[in-house]
Write a protein that binds this DNA or RNA. Structure first.
Lengths: 404, 404
DNA sequence: TTCATTTTCTCGACTGTCGAGAAAATAATT
DNA sequence: AATTATTTTCTCGACAGTCGAGAAAATGAA
């Protein structure tokens, strides 16, 4: 369904364009903005004047010296225009970061998660407390925070900021928007962790126009398995999603998954699945809550020394991933796959299985296997994805608001 | 990546909006267009005047009589603004239709396909000849044809109008754009058949705003299995795709598929798969090229009388579909499923298997099974989808072209 | 001090949307 | 038959936005 357009919307879109260009390339002069966005110089003047009046941009103090001619004055986002809080929830720790509108990190601390406590209520309390602490440490007023961006593994409803299913809380829902609504005016965003990885990688690819980016997938290997897909829609905007890949049906024989179903990809390719296969534990055993990496390192070592069952476990994990990726490609399209997460240390052991699992499908026979790249430093990518996403959302709101 | 906007683009978008409203609701008066689109009356005047000058719209001759006041004058697409050719390629016949810009059918004939001939060359010849014949029968000049819209089962590259894989030609590619490029000026569009079903159903759903349409899937059951997915993107536009569902990996034990791979959904749920299972033919037997419906009717009859293997064959087909649907839902999101195609006569026999196959996945356990509706009259829906798609594309081009 | 060069800023023209009210066309009423 | 009421279409001026061209500003080199 198309919607009506107007001259005001034109301004909105072009303001957003200017903000995005500044975001992408740091400080830009008037003429650089013009060439970057394709807007006429006069239009850039009008837009920057408006944004400057609204307190979103400033002229950067440090002039860049250079050749003759009138010196260029650089525009930059006003870092004190507002603040953002980024929360990265992982299985063992929760990381809280305070960031300014310019995207620079101001403060950060971790909290160890208590694995004994049950239910979401204690977590919700410590979450709210931690945000409060973050404010106090920087002597910041609550209303200066424009947005709180949260990430977790699991199934997420992005529009309403509700966590629908997660490895830790299971089916117990956690509504972050409702949690902060009474006190906080900030926009609350919740994203799947691997979606953010895909977002960050896609943003990187878009900065290299020669890469011809169209779509990519990110897979995170660890105790659980995550997938993020980023695709350019026909209108040119980025469409990012986090399918429920880890709990997509692989094959019922893969055994009991901690989600309660049988045969999820995770039950074969997650850490506990590999552990179970290596030790020949019956496949309907309740999965371990947490597997230390050292445990898996041992299995990997013996697999590399030729131990049969250890090797078999990793191979089965690979097949589950390969089949899953081939199914994903059947339902979307051919696209490169980026593999991250702690499990990449065992990637060499899984690769033969992945290739075997891929080769079974028609899609791969027809179009060839996808490019698979290993990407380290998942946590940095998640954080980058947070910034990309939350700053983009804030900029979009600013552009839409007009001078207000 | 955002792109720059301008006042001209505003006019384009709003022109497209007016054309779409007219398309949707038939003849509309000035004021009706205004309320339908949300545009101000003055804007509607400007746009309709421009489109009328360009020969796209006319004022309908037959005035609707009514109450007091100045009688409303209805706008309608000028039917002679151009013509469209719709080609529906199915396994046994090819249907050629001539349609005018108003969407009314002017001429139609079928050609029976010759199953003995090999390769794409003879087909390409008869295709070009048939288009020529369609012109002659209506004494139409070739350049009056604005677009040729073609549909087939199989894997399609919509942007370039190339058929990448099809049940009949296999891996032999068929480039319809290149085929018509020397002679025809018309825009050539190629779509997967089930994509068009999804498009038509989505258009119907969007006409009922109270249905709260967000996404839907269409599945076509027959000799092969097709899937179309239509989703509203966040920007509100309709995003339609045709995943390679029939040849998504189900389970290797499902046997040899006619695509050459093992374990495709089609190898279990397509007509030849059901036949093979019912007669206990070894699963690596080369599949039958064509199975008459009467043959399947017999198997269905004996299944309904309690014959074990016949019932088993339909159940296995159902499980393949159920598993496949659950995987599709894992990778997209929960959405209603519409089942069409000649195979719906056996839907009662497959439903238990479908439910079983669905129930195995975490997605369904968590969010419940999707609504499944049986929709008859697949061919009509395909044709509707053709019109929806090709007229939309033409209208979009007209709006973009300006007065030209 | 003047000139060349580069960047920023400003002005008028153009395109587009919108609201209000005039104009048109018909039915109902006097 | 003339007038009035009603409804729709059309037109005009105001306003928002972009664009190209050229003026103004600011600096290094001559």
């Amino acid at each position: 369904m198309l919607t009506k357009s107007s001259t005001e919307l034109v301004r909105q879109q072009n303001s957003a364009l200017v903000l995005a260009a500044l975001r992408r390339s740091g400080n830009l002069s008037h003429t650089e903005i013009s060439s970057e966005t394709g807007l006429a110089s006069a239009t850039v003047s009008a837009i920057t004047a408006e944004l400057e009046k609204a307190g979103v941009l400033t002229k950067a103090e440090q002039q860049v010296q250079g050749g003759r001619g009138r010196p260029r004055v650089l525009f930059t986002p006003r870092r004190d225009h507002g603040h953002l809080i980024v929360v990265r929830i992982s299985s063992d720790i929760v990381q809280y970061s305070l960031v300014d509108y310019g995207g620079t990190l101001l403060d950060r601390f971790d909290e160890v998660r208590n694995h004994d406590e049950r239910g979401t209520a204690p977590f919700a309390r410590s979450f709210v407390d931690a945000l409060e602490r973050l404010l106090q440490r920087s002597r910041l007023e609550r209303d200066r925070v424009l947005a709180v961006s949260i990430s977790s593994k699991g199934l997420v409803d992005g529009t309403s900021a509700r966590l629908l299913w997660s490895p830790v809380f299971g089916r117990e829902e956690l509504d972050f928007a409702a949690l902060l609504a009474p006190q906080w005016r900030a926009k609350v965003m919740l994203s799947n962790e691997t979606l953010l990885v895909a977002q960050a990688l896609a943003a990187q690819a878009e900065r290299r126009p020669e890469s011809g980016f169209r779509a990519l997938a990110a897979i995170s290997l660890g105790h659980s398995i995550g997938l993020g897909v980023a695709r350019k829609s026909q209108s040119g905007e980025l469409d990012v999603g986090a399918p429920n890949f880890g709990h997509m049906l692989h094959t019922p024989s893969a055994g009991l998954c901690r989600c309660g179903a049988y045969g999820c990809i995770e039950a074969a390719a997650g850490f506990y699945g590999i552990l179970r296969a290596a030790f020949e534990v019956p496949a309907d055993t309740i999965p371990a809550k947490f597997v230390p990496v050292t445990e898996l390192d041992k299995i990997a070592a013996s697999a590399r020394q030729g131990h049969r069952m250890a090797g078999y476990a990793f191979r089965q994990a690979g097949i589950a991933l390969g089949n899953g990726i081939s199914r994903m490609l059947s339902l979307y399209e051919r696209m490169p796959v980026h593999v991250t997460g702690p499990g990449i240390r065992y990637f060499d052991l899984m690769l033969p299985g992945i290739e075997e699992g891929l080769a079974q499908s028609m899609q791969v026979r027809l179009q060839g296997p996808p490019e698979i790249a290993v990407v380290a430093d998942e946590q940095r990518l998640v954080f980058e994805g947070h910034l990309e996403r939350v700053l983009g959302a804030i900029d979009g709101e600013i552009a839409s608001a007009g001078i207000a």
